[in-house]
Simulated assay, not measured.
Amino acid sequence: MQAVWQEKELSPHLGTALYGVDIRAQRTPAFARQLKQLLARRGVVVLKDQQLEPQDQLDFTRLLGQPILNFPHEFTWLGMREIAILSNILVDGKPIGNRAVGRNWHTDFTFKEFPAAYTMLYGIEVPNEGGGTGFARLQKAYEELSLSEREMLRGRNATYSYAKLQERIRGGRPATHIVSEPDVTHPLMRVHPETGEAGLFINHNDLLQIEGFSEDESLAFADRILASACSDDAIIEHRWEPNDLVIWDNRVVLHIGLPYDMEKERRLLHRTMVQGERPIAML
């Protein structure tokens, strides 16, 4: 990155914070290329001290690619489905945003034919204690597989279901209202389009089944992979400050929303996502 701002690595293996960058003044293809390269290498980039209106965030999202329309769409900024509101705040007794999302390790929108490449969260109000976002490299789990396991997984696909995701969120109750998102199939081992690096691509909550595995075996395998990637010594936690913009590459990292006291603390974040490519299978 250019020398007009400062960089700080958040850990030896993951995450970089940038200081002195105003993204409103960095809407150029050259900056987008630099940022994508940094995300591919470091997984997570934290841009400190931003002063963003919702349109600013959406414009910057478009710099990186095509914004994704959020699901569900009831908690969006003034009906703009590209901007999701994540919040525990109530106005006249009604929630203004999605109160509790992402409370387990995952990657975004695996249930889409073109999953999210990048996710952006902008912190407007953040808790004084708790409520951080954790990150882990999925590549770590790939590196810990034996050669025979890699060969066994090569060429296999996994099927993901938005309806199944909603059932699990709803505690097993059927999500009969979900009709617009058909099940999708993605390779278990994919290649990152920026680096050519091979790695795993797997999620849990929306996982229906892995080819050649039963449903129970599929979920058990996903649990094992996520546990391997997310061991305590390998994760980082972003502790939010107001006006942080956090961007991550879903092809590199898993993430999790960490708990906080939702009765005492206030939290308001805006989320946008960039559509990625159809996952490229490792040959």
Score class of each variant (00 low, 15 high):
W5R: 08
P12W: 03
A17C: 12
A17H: 06
Q26F: 13
A30Q: 13
L35C: 11
L38W: 10
R42G: 02
R42K: 15
V45R: 02
V46S: 13
L64P: 00
Q66P: 01
Q66D: 06
P67N: 03
L69F: 06
E74D: 03
E82C: 08
I85T: 10
G93K: 15
K94A: 12
G97F: 03
N98Y: 14
R99P: 01
A100D: 14
H106G: 04
H106Q: 04
F109H: 13
T110V: 15
T110D: 08
K112E: 08
E113Y: 07
E113M: 04
A116F: 11
L121G: 02
L121C: 04
E125D: 07
E129F: 15
T133W: 08
G134C: 13
A136I: 11
Q139R: 15
A141R: 02
Y142C: 02
L147F: 05
L147T: 14
E149T: 09
E149C: 04
E151F: 10
M152I: 15
L153N: 06
R154K: 11
G155L: 04
R156C: 01
T159C: 12
K164L: 15
R168C: 12
G172L: 06
R173G: 06
A175E: 13
H177N: 11
S180F: 15
P182I: 05
V184M: 15
T185I: 12
R190Y: 13
P193I: 08
T195N: 00
E197H: 15
L200F: 07
N205M: 14
D206Q: 08
L207P: 05
Q209V: 00
F213R: 00
E215W: 09
S218E: 00
D223A: 00
S228H: 01
C230I: 01
D233Q: 02
E237V: 09
H238W: 02
W240T: 00
L245R: 03
D249I: 10
N250E: 03
R251V: 10
G257Q: 04
P259A: 11
K264P: 05
R266W: 11
R271E: 00
M273S: 15
M273W: 08
G276D: 02
R278G: 13
A281D: 01
A281H: 01
